[in-house]
Nucleic acid binder design. Sequence first.
DNA 1: TAGATTGTTAATCGATTAACAATC
DNA 2: TAGATTGTTAATCGATTAACAATC
Lengths: 213, 213
Amino acid sequence: MKVFKIPEATIIRLSVYSRFLEQADKKGIVTISSGEIAEGVGVSPAQVRKDLAYFGEFGTRGVGYNVKDLLHHTLKILGLSREWPVVVVGAGNLGTALVSYRGFRERGFKIVGIFDNDPNKIGKTIGDMVVQSMEELPETIAKKNAAIGVIAVPATIAQDVADLLVKAGIKAIMNFAPKALMVPDAVEIRNIDLAVTLEILTFNLCMRENGLL
Amino acid sequence: MKVFKIPEATIIRLSVYSRFLEQADKKGIVTISSGEIAEGVGVSPAQVRKDLAYFGEFGTRGVGYNVKDLLHHTLKILGLSREWPVVVVGAGNLGTALVSYRGFRERGFKIVGIFDNDPNKIGKTIGDMVVQSMEELPETIAKKNAAIGVIAVPATIAQDVADLLVKAGIKAIMNFAPKALMVPDAVEIRNIDLAVTLEILTFNLCMRENGLL
DNA sequence: TAGATTGTTAATCGATTAACAATC
DNA sequence: TAGATTGTTAATCGATTAACAATC
């Protein structure tokens, strides 16, 4: 790894490649070419090779890539060669859904705590977790060594929750509240706005209606 | 509207602009410049003007943009000047969360039906909706004139659900199942992969750890 | 060696930004 | 008119793709 500026699109594609390689590995495929990966995930072979080239030389000229090998490399690059403990703040519908979201577990994310400030929710069981009070947040983060926090609370208190997470030593935040949050530069943050996705769809529907797409 | 190829990034920014304009309007601001919008949402003034220029001339030279006016224009462009009836398939935790997701309602998306094939879930009340059986899906879609469907079922049956939605006349699909779905070209589809977002975070955390970011 | 496929460079494409004429 | 800000063109920047030498 020697390059500093890597397009985010490359990271997203690496994630796609790794999932595709997992499937290929399951099917018992040993060797795969950039063309086959490209075909499988819907990009160009050059794109596949270029994306990988940012991080090293993983293939053999004239042969292709060893599936298991490349799978491990891609997972390593994404930081998925270890388990990531994650805390979820907000035990509403969304928080509850996230705790049992299979897509997280499959990629090595482990929910190690769910928190809420509502006394009616504290103590309730969600899957194999018990909803904890916000007071227990710092201790659990420290004890479980969680670096990632998910915010699933109303927009009104999202900033307060972000502040608490940062204070407790969280290094990355995934925010579902429809509100831009302020965090120190040392903390990574991503806002998930589900409505925006629907708006891209409605825009495209309108374009089609008008015969422009 | 005369241009055919509009960057998706432009659409996403238009969504951001419209939210910012809503806030500005609430504050009673009447006129706003591209510089002020840019400042408010964190892009360049040229970007704001260019994004708008794809769709028309909405400002007055030397003056700026009328906030209410531009707000309406941006919402119109995004297709949000009408209400969009949406059906949700899957009454698990995620589906339940989506039915009461405030971010949808705020932007004009109205959930008009939630469906499941689990007899234990059918008939249950979620907010002000009753979970319907899958058999009722086509009729509800037709009656409520729903063009958008949300898939919140396990990956194993996601394709079947997509087929049903398409057959029932749905024109756009938002898919939360971690699986690429096949739909006809006439149907718009977006996959939401929540794990990928976490993977971008873990990648960045690893880059930081290695002093590369 | 002949055939295949990588890794990488150069060419292309597309999106962002800077600059400025138009104009309020 | 002088000052301000848009709409738009040209310049820049960055990402994708085509092409090919390296090499298995």
